[in-house]
Structure formats: structure tokens, C-alpha cells
Amino acid sequence: MTMKQRKIPMRKDIVTGEMQPKKSLVRVVKNKENEVSLDPTGKKPGRGAYVSINVDVARQAKAKKTFDQAFDIKIDDSFYDELIEYVDHQQARRELFDNE
């Protein structure tokens, strides 16, 4: 008997436009106060956008100011630096634990 295939929630990477499993993306959220933050749990209230856990993609997001456009606000570079750092860390962890 084969195990039932669970439906994998897909989300669109805002930088590349590709649909990917939600697990391989990180959510960025803008709240009512127009604060933009990383949302690793995916549960913060506000408008969310997703980006790949991929350092190159995170760097592209910074270069193109992707989230400034998505949320229609000016975002500080320090946010993008935090995003790149977070993604870098997650990518490294994933490479360590991917063989489980």
C-alpha cells in the first residue's frame, strides 16, 4: 500500500516568480505599522511575500529592492542584510540536515 501523497503547499518566490514548496521559502511580512520583518513561523499578521532560501536570490532581492516594490514602501538596507544573513544560515543548515 502506498502512502497517500500529502498536498505540498506551494508559494511564489517574489524574486524569481517560480512556484516552490512553502518549506523552501521564507515569508517576509509587512504589518499595519508598515514594519517589514522576517516571519520564519509564517504566522505573523500582515501582508506576506515569499523568497527562496537561496543566498543568490536574497542578494537579488536587495539589488532590485524587490520588497520595497512588493509592499510599496521604502525598506532599509539593513532589512535586506538581515534577510541575506538569515537565508545564508538556513541554507547552511539545510545542507547539513538535508540527508535525513
Rank of each mutant, 00 (worst) to 15 (best):
M1Q: 06
T2H: 09
T2Q: 11
M3I: 14
M3T: 14
K4Y: 13
Q5T: 14
Q5M: 12
K7H: 09
I8S: 14
I8E: 15
P9H: 09
P9E: 15
M10Q: 15
M10S: 02
R11P: 01
R11D: 12
R11V: 03
K12C: 02
K12Y: 05
K12P: 00
T16C: 08
G17E: 08
E18V: 12
E18P: 00
M19W: 13
Q20R: 09
K22W: 03
K22N: 10
K23L: 01
K23Q: 11
K23G: 09
S24P: 00
S24Y: 08
L25I: 03
L25C: 10
V26K: 03
R27C: 00
R27L: 07
V28P: 05
V28A: 03
N31G: 02
K32Q: 08
E33M: 14
E33W: 10
N34V: 07
V36R: 00
V36G: 01
S37W: 02
L38Q: 02
D39N: 01
D39I: 01
P40E: 07
T41Y: 04
G42P: 04
G42M: 03
G42F: 05
K43H: 09
K43R: 15
K44Y: 01
K44S: 08
P45R: 07
G46Y: 03
G46A: 04
R47N: 10
R47W: 03
G48Y: 05
A49T: 01
Y50I: 06
Y50T: 02
Y50G: 04
S52P: 01
S52T: 11
S52E: 06
I53H: 04
N54K: 10
N54L: 10
N54V: 04
V55E: 13
V55L: 13
V57E: 02
V57C: 05
A58V: 07
A58K: 08
A58F: 01
A58R: 03
Q60D: 10
Q60H: 09
Q60W: 09
A61E: 08
A61D: 02
K62N: 08
K62G: 02
A63E: 15
K64H: 13
K65D: 10
K65G: 10
T66A: 14
T66D: 12
T66C: 08
T66N: 06
F67D: 01
F67Y: 08
F67A: 03
F67K: 02
D68A: 07
D68S: 10
D68N: 14
D68L: 06
D68H: 06
A70H: 11
A70Q: 13
A70P: 00
A70D: 08
F71I: 02
D72Q: 12
K74W: 05
K74Y: 08
K74E: 11
I75R: 00
I75C: 01
D76M: 08
D76G: 10
D77S: 06
D77W: 09
D77G: 15
F79T: 04
F79W: 06
Y80K: 05
D81Y: 05
D81R: 03
D81M: 06
D81K: 11
L83T: 10
L83W: 07
I84N: 09
I84D: 13
E85F: 14
Y86A: 12
D88K: 15
D88C: 13
D88G: 11
D88Q: 14
H89E: 15
Q90I: 12
Q90E: 15
A92W: 12
R93D: 13
R93K: 15
R93I: 13
R94Q: 14
E95A: 02
F97R: 07
D98N: 15
D98M: 15
